[in-house]
Computed example of a mutant assay.
Amino acid sequence: MSQRLGEPRRPVRARRPLVAVPIAWIVAVSVVDVLAPPHVHLGPLLVAAPAITPLFGGAWTVALVAALAVIAQTAIGVVRDPDELLSANHEAQILALILVGASLVVFCVVRERRAKELRQVRYVSEAAQRVVLPPLPSRLGPLRTASLYLAAEAEAQIGGDLYAAVRTTSGTRMIVGDVRGKGLTAVNDAALLLGAFRVMAGRRAGLGELVRHLDRSVCGDLTEPGRHGEAFITATVLDIPDRDGRVRMVSCGHPPPVVVRDGRPATMSVLHPAPPLGLGHLADPRYHVESFPFEPGDLLLLYTDGVTEARDSAGTFYPLAERITGWTENDPDAFLGRFRRDLLHHVDGHLDDDAAMIVIGRPAPSGA
C-alpha cells in the first residue's frame, strides 16, 4: 500500500474567494490615489495585486488581476490629469504593470507545467511501487494484519522499503527490509529479494538456510560493476507459527520488532545480529535464529528505519516505544491508523525517508 504524504492541493473552488483580496487592493489603492493630494502617487502599489495572485491562482487568474491593475492605473491617470489624459509618470507605471503581469503569467505557466510533470512522475512511481509491494492480506491464517507504505514527499523517487508474507503448512513467514538507496535501482533490488523470498519461504528449509539463500540471491546483483557506493539490504525474516506462541527470527541489521501487550511495548533485543543481506561475500556469516513470545491478544509491530529516524522540527527522532505506550487498540487496522497519524504529527506531515509499517495481531481465543 502506498500512501502519499503532505496535504492535497487546495481545490480550485476553495481558492477562488482569495481572488477578492487583490481585487479589493486594486479598488482601495485606486480610490485613495484619486482622493490623495496631487503630489502623492500611490499607483506603484498596484503591482502588489498581480504579485500576490500566484500564491493561490493560475496563469489566467494572474492575467485577469494584472489587466485590472492596468485598467485601474489608466483610470487613475485619466481622472488625475484630465487635460493631458495621461502623464509620462502614469505611462511608465502602466508599462511596468504590463511587464510585471506578463512575467508572472509566464512564471505560472512554467510552474503549472512542471507541477503536472511531477504529478505524473509520482503517479508512475507509486504505481510501480504498488506492483512490487502489494499490501498484505488482512488475514494470514489465524493472524490479522495491516500494512502501510508512506512515501516521502521530499522527492518523487520511490524507495526500497519492502515486506512480504508467505503461508506455510504450520504458520506464516514474513520479511521486512530496506534497500540502501532510492530510485529504480532500489526497486529492482527489492523486487529481486522479494521474488527469492516468495520462492523459498514456502519450502521446508530452516530459517537460517532461508536467509542464507536470500543473501546469495542478492549478492551478485548488489556487487555488480557500475554501482556507486556500498549496496546492501537490511532485513528481518520471521517465522510466526499458527499455534506455538514463540516467533523465530533472523535479524540482518534491521530495526528490531516490537511486541505490544496491554498497552506496554517491548522491543525484542537481537543478541546475535547478522550483517545486512548482500554483504555475505565479505565473510561467511552465521545466521542465529532467535525467538520471542507472541501470545494471543498481542500486537507485533514491524517497521523500517524511516519510522525511527523520522525527525520533528527540532531534529528529534521519533521515540517509537515512548509514543505507543498506553495504546490499547487491539485491532491491527485501528492501531496502524493511530500510528500513522501520530508519526505524521511528529514530523509535521513531511517525512524525509520512506517508511513501511506492519501490525500483526494474534487474536485471543473466542472463549477467553
Results as ranks from 00 to 15, higher is better:
234 T>G: 00
242 D>Y: 15
270 V>M: 03
256 P>A: 13
243 R>M: 04
259 V>S: 01
235 A>N: 03
246 R>C: 09
257 P>H: 05
253 G>T: 04
263 G>R: 01
244 D>C: 03
266 A>G: 02
235 A>K: 04
236 T>S: 09
249 M>F: 15
254 H>D: 07
258 V>E: 05
250 V>P: 08
230 E>P: 07
266 A>W: 01
248 R>M: 10
242 D>A: 12
273 P>I: 04
262 D>F: 04
257 P>Y: 06
252 C>H: 11
232 F>M: 14
259 V>H: 06
258 V>P: 04
271 L>R: 15
229 G>W: 14
272 H>S: 10
235 A>M: 04
260 V>M: 12
250 V>D: 01
267 T>E: 11
244 D>K: 07
252 C>L: 06
228 H>K: 15
232 F>P: 14
247 V>T: 12
233 I>G: 13
257 P>K: 04
240 I>K: 01
240 I>E: 02
232 F>G: 12
270 V>F: 03
270 V>I: 15
239 D>L: 00
248 R>K: 14
249 M>L: 15
236 T>E: 04
252 C>D: 13
238 L>N: 08
233 I>R: 12
242 D>E: 14
243 R>I: 13
230 E>M: 11
266 A>T: 11
262 D>T: 00
264 R>K: 07
270 V>C: 09
236 T>W: 01
267 T>S: 02
253 G>N: 04
266 A>I: 00
243 R>A: 14
245 G>Q: 12
238 L>T: 08
228 H>M: 12
241 P>W: 11
245 G>K: 08
259 V>A: 05
238 L>A: 08
266 A>S: 09
253 G>M: 05
257 P>L: 00
236 T>I: 14
229 G>T: 13
245 G>T: 09
230 E>R: 10
271 L>G: 14
232 F>T: 09
248 R>G: 06
230 E>Q: 13
243 R>Y: 10
245 G>C: 04
255 P>F: 04
270 V>T: 13
263 G>P: 01
256 P>H: 05
266 A>H: 09
266 A>Q: 08
233 I>N: 13
265 P>M: 02
249 M>G: 07
259 V>W: 05
246 R>K: 11
249 M>W: 09
257 P>N: 06
273 P>M: 06
238 L>W: 05
256 P>E: 14
261 R>N: 09
258 V>N: 02
268 M>T: 07
230 E>S: 12
258 V>M: 01
257 P>E: 02
249 M>V: 08
253 G>L: 00
251 S>P: 09
242 D>I: 05
228 H>W: 12
241 P>S: 13
249 M>D: 03
233 I>P: 14
243 R>F: 01
260 V>G: 01
260 V>D: 00
238 L>V: 06
273 P>R: 01
243 R>H: 10
257 P>G: 09
235 A>T: 08
243 R>L: 11
262 D>N: 10
268 M>N: 03
242 D>K: 06
250 V>N: 10
258 V>I: 14
